[in-house]
Amino acid sequence: MAILDVQHLTVDFALDDGGTLRAVDDTSFTIDSGEVLGLVGESGSGKSVTALSIMRLLDSQADITAGRILFDGEDLATKSEAEMRTIRGQRISMIFQEPMTSLNPAYTVGDQVSEVFRHHLHMGFGESKQRAIEMFERVKIPRPKDTYGKFPHEFSGGMRQRVMIAIALACGPDLLIADEPTTALDVTIQAQVLSVIQDLQHDMGLALLFISHDLEVVAQMCDKVAVMYGARLMEVGESTSLFTGPRHPYTDGLLRSIPRRGQPLTPIAGTIFDLRSPPDGCRFHPRCPYAEDRCRRETPELRALEPAGDGRLAACHFPLAGVGAKA
């Protein structure tokens, strides 16, 4: 059963000049309990805004203008701020891209973890400290007891991200949103932090929304993948089959732009459009090598593709064949 069911999510930003910008457009996907969904796309494609919409932590000039965000059957989009506060940090948690700035520099890391226990589970200081130290152990921070009283600036980026994970998982949430959690880290540290996330996801049976632009990391971490381009979903499917046989030309292009041995590297031609003035029809058509007249006129809906049953969805009038693609 889906723990998270996002239906037709649409988010608009009010711009300073009075105009609006649609950062997420008619986006739908689901995540089952214990499932890992990767959300991939270039920067500015709407991944982070989608995540922040689920948390209801959007900036004041952003607004969810349509759609529903069903979490455990209840629509988060219509919840009051007070109701959201009981959900955030307790049932849905989030970790962010910038480990260096995401922790409060003025408080010890121990306080920042134990605070969650005190706030949500109403524990006293002694008990919350004990639990915080346990969390430090679970995210494999060396010398968890000494760690408690230290300040964020005394740690490296990797360690800080572990502290963030400890904060996020403290109350045993149902869903974790990880927004580019390792992008800012060195490659070796990246692998360690990913394995911590992976282990805890498995142990705790977490549903995980894993946002990244790194396709290899997504392939390694995720059961299912959703590909986003210019505020809309282009393709959704099982991780293994999607990576071996992309059906949407954009996914295909993304995969071709990863350096691989023995294959020529072919970046997608052109650049992403300005979100303030999206192209008519399919948003990818100006860069798509297969675009035809219909693509310029009609916006393709995200729909199930033949052969039915494998759950693959794509928003394309002329989807690729899949395994052993056209080009």
């Binding site: 506060r85 940090g89 948690s93 962010f96 995401s102 922790l103 409060n104 706030h119 904060i167």
Partner: peptide, 29 residues
Amino acid sequence: REDYVRTARAKGLSERLVIWKHIFKNSML
């Protein structure tokens, strides 16, 4: 506008705690 404020909100803290605990101490410094 700092990231740590977003983290505090993501924890589900009340606005009172976010302002008078998390931001306040940094601002007083």
